[in-house]
Design a protein around this nucleic acid. Sequence first.
DNA 1: AGGATGATATCC
DNA 2: GATATCATCCTC
Length: 200
Amino acid sequence: MATSRRNVRRDALSHFSMIKLERDFFDRDTCTVARDLLGKWLVHHVNDEERVGRIVEVEAYLGPGDLAAHSARGPTPRTRAMFGPPGHAYIYLIYGMHHCMNIVTEGVGSGTGVLLRAIEPIRNVAGNTRGPGLLTRAMGLNLTHYGHDLCSENFYVAQPEKPEPVTVVERPRVGVHYAGDWADKPLRFYIKDNPYISKK
DNA sequence: AGGATGATATCC
DNA sequence: GATATCATCCTC
């Protein structure tokens, strides 16, 4: 995938060097994107503060046909973003209290995406980040970010200049017992032995 | 083990 | 319009 020189940033705001991911990173097979997101940095600028979290746990949702996916029964007002172009945020409110963030993958109409379940604090991230609702709270994300393009200036995913090697663990997804055969498929991925995983 | 808390999907 | 459900988190 293309990583152009203009996307290498070393400015005053981020004293870490990183390479911003471009849209073609997300326009690939969803499980591949999910795995490749492990170890990447989620970056969100809140006022003059740059919040950075290292993605350590994700889940893949494979679109209509995946009975655990919100997109299982086609587009609705809520899931509209999942059927849009890759590299955008699908964020929803759950249990009336918590927000969960997905990154849309593959082409327009796929209904696929990757749920971010846990991050490791890197910079300006306070509080518990071990869980999808806690992650969004710590990163300052909510429904105002619904459909936000991650190929943007203030909200994006980047590869650190010197990424640590990761070993990927596969497990069934969390909280999708209702999804029949799809509940058992190993579509949850996390970094082995990372202390910020949401649960065993 | 159970409560919080509100949008959404799916029924009538 | 009513209601069951929810890709969760916290406290007991």
